[in-house]
Write a protein that binds this DNA or RNA. Structure first.
Lengths: 81, 81
DNA sequence: TCGCATGTTACGCTGTGGCGCAAAATTTAG
DNA sequence: CTAAATTTTGCGCCACAGCGTAACATGCGA
């Protein structure tokens, strides 16, 4: 499951896939973040206007964190050792 | 240079470090994104209210992309093969 | 087929991001 | 030490996210 993203759409898609993989509903995320279900929906559908705080809250609820990497950069030897 | 982030502060810090590593000024990023220097400043200083679109624009200008990973998750064998 | 769960959309409201413009504050170079 | 470059902050303005609430659509199991 690749969770690389350059766009809001890709971020929303990644969050939705992770949520489903956890077997959770948007309502579950809502309860864990105090964000409205509508807000989760909007984010998962790729709204680039979403605030960073909202994205981070959902990611925390899903147990995810960001890693910023060189565009298109795959694994490099230095990353391993 | 580790660019892992769970908070807006860490994201801002990572963006600033990457920008400096490129030898660029906030003004350079501003020119490449059509965002105000003040907006870049705010983001680098960890404003969680920043819009996703703004973060993504700056990341694109820096040649970065997001990778969402399990919290605290380091490299796993499956990531390599 | 029907009904409940899940997800999407809408309305009015408040708070605030990002804009232009500009001035202060801080950092860096000479 | 001082001037220039870089960054931060402020003001008025407009646009819109996220809120409560609710209706509507979609999906899925009994």
């Amino acid at each position: 499951m690749d969770l690389t993203a350059r766009t809001a759409e890709q971020i929303g898609e990644a969050l939705r896939r992770t949520r489903k993989a956890r077997g959770w509903t948007q309502s579950d995320i809502s309860a864990r973040t105090n964000l409205r279900v509508a807000t989760i929906s909007s984010l998962e559908n790729g709204d680039a206007g979403t605030k960073l705080a909202t994205v981070l809250a959902v990611m925390a609820a899903l147990g995810l964190e960001f890693r910023m990497v060189e565009r298109g950069g795959s694994l490099e030897i230095e990353d391993i050792f």
